[in-house]
Write a protein that binds this DNA or RNA. Structure first.
Length: 483
DNA sequence: GTAGAAATAT
DNA sequence: CATATTTCTA
């Protein structure tokens, strides 16, 4: 675990030159570091971390220390306390913002079959930005939050609970995660079904204010998960260095420089500086009330979630707010969703418009996620929902069982934000909906998932003439062009 | 206050 | 230029 930390430190060092100081508060001290790890630190680095270098070890020493370390780690790992101690709910407003978003399917319940699909979890990581701001923050930052977020987030994010259902698959994933992201986690902490609120705004711009507004509510009134999914980690992520903001995973061709990002955001923090009364920094001037929130990147996972939600609700009920709630993604705003929905509708419209010879549709994101088979129609038919239906409560989030969506053989076993987006991968969307009572139509989905039969229709028509079916359209999304 | 569309920004 | 955010209107 420490290996990772160290690596990061190094990265930082290299990247930001002398800004390491900023990280010092979060770095382990000589005492905190376990023996074996300590011995791995170079003299230079050690001095940089204000810890004294370890004397050379004898084989015996090493052996003994390893054992100690191991035991130590064991303890940490299984001690519930270690989990509790983590600033789970704590807002992270700090720098460097290391964001790790992850998605984990957790059946929560004992539903054994809940397959966790290959979807591992996505881990987004970003390194601390070296905006000019960095330094400032480093100094002004209050007493709090000295720790390095990274691991913590990851740990929290990965809700590896998945008790019974856990498959080897899962484990592997977990292992991977641990590997790359360091300790973390993964205890199947009991937290009975709690949503693992991993909140933290990608701090790219340090705009780390918390999801204050609209979202906090999720945790309260709504069911914890959608389809058995635990709360999604913060969607905000940072790309390694492409600097390109765009969601496109591709090259950074269009990339504006990091410089851009730095821009006005250079302030942001003040809101948090919080109580502490620490001498509020000099930001005042820079306090361009601009407090923009970081640009959200709609990753395939996120989008899928979105689509799932929309599908779940049916186009009719799929309004931003509801979708947002259903998605249960922390930090996601209604605006985010509204915006995406807007775009999504356009996409749908377009799709139906030129169904036949559709142009290559560059919407990799959209096109890669199968439309929920039930978009619109069924729900339309189902309008009267509340009536005698076991089905979905209209506006509420149905704590519906959500078995292995996207799972199966198709999903990627592991997903890291650093990877090129698996656009090609077609996740099977939204299956296993509970039986709709009078569901007349039944869209079958090809088992192989390579071709998706999707039902779609002009969204206007949904609204207006829902009853009639003429509008219906069957679109088939391009074959899984895995690329 | 919210949804949806249009205007902006990145 | 594409995409996300912000603003504006109903």
């Amino acid at each position: 675990m420490h290996a990772c930390e160290r690596r990061r430190v190094v990265d930082m060092t290299m990247k930001d030159g002398d800004h390491v100081v900023e990280w010092n508060p979060g770095l382990p001290t000589g005492e905190e570091l376990n023996p074996t790890s300590k011995s791995l630190i170079s003299l230079v680095l050690a001095s940089g971390l204000s810890m004294k270098p370890e004397p050379l070890k004898t084989a015996a020493d090493v052996s003994g220390e390893s054992r100690a370390s191991f035991l130590d780690s064991q303890v940490q790992r299984f001690s519930p306390m270690s989990f509790e101690a983590l600033p789970l709910f704590k807002e992270r407003k700090d720098a460097g913002s290391f964001v790790c978003a992850s998605e984990v399917r957790d059946d929560g319940g004992g539903r054994g079959d809940g397959h966790v699909g290959g979807r591992g979890g996505s881990i987004a990581t970003g390194e601390g930005r070296s905006d000019a701001r960095g330094e400032v923050r480093g100094e002004t930052r209050g007493a709090e939050e000295p720790e390095i977020e990274a691991e913590v987030e990851v740990g929290l994010g990965l809700g590896l609970g998945s008790g019974g259902g856990g498959r080897d698959n899962d484990r592997a994933t977990v292992a991977e995660k641990q590997n790359c992201c360091s300790h973390s986690a993964s205890y199947s902490h009991g937290h009975g079904g709690h949503p693992m609120p991993t909140v933290f705004r990608g701090g790219s711009d340090g705009t780390s204010h918390q999801p204050s507004e609209g979202r906090s509510e999720h945790s309260s009134g709504l069911p914890f998960m959608m389809n058995g999914l635990p709360a999604y980690g913060s969607p905000y992520e940072r790309r390694p260095d492409s600097s390109s903001y765009g969601g496109r995973g591709d090259d950074s061709s269009k990339g504006g420089g990091c410089a851009k990002n730095a821009r006005k955001l250079a302030d942001s923090d003040f809101e948090d500086t919080d109580s502490g009364g620490g001498p509020v920094n000099s930001n005042e001037e820079t306090n361009a009330r601009t407090l923009k929130r970081p640009r959200l990147v709609w990753t395939p996972q996120l989008h899928k979630r979105f689509v799932d939600a929309v599908g779940h609700l049916g186009i009719k009920n799929a309004v931003p707010k509801t979708i947002m709630q259903l998605m249960n993604v922390e930090g996601l705003t209604r605006e985010n969703v509204a915006s995406h929905l807007q775009k999504y509708r356009l996409y749908l419209k377009r799709m139906q418009g030129l169904s036949s010879d559709g142009p290559p549709a560059n919407d990799q994101l959209f096109s890669s996620t199968p439309l929920p088979p039930n978009l619109g129609l069924h729900y339309m038919a189902n309008q009267r929902e509340d009536v005698g239906g076991p089905s979905f409560p209209p506006a509420t989030v149905p704590p519906m069982p959500y078995k292995g969506v996207g799972g199966g053989p198709l999903g990627p076993a592991h997903f890291s934000v650093y990877d090129r987006m698996p656009y090609g991968v077609v996740n099977r969307g939204f299956l296993q909906r509970p039986p709709m009572k009078d569901r007349t139509e039944h869209i079958s989905e090809s088992e192989n998932g390579n071709h998706q039969s999707v039902l779609s229709q002009n969204h206007h028509s949904y609204m207006e003439k829902r009853a009639n079916s003429p509008e219906k359209r069957l679109l088939s999304l391009f074959p899984t062009s895995s690329r």
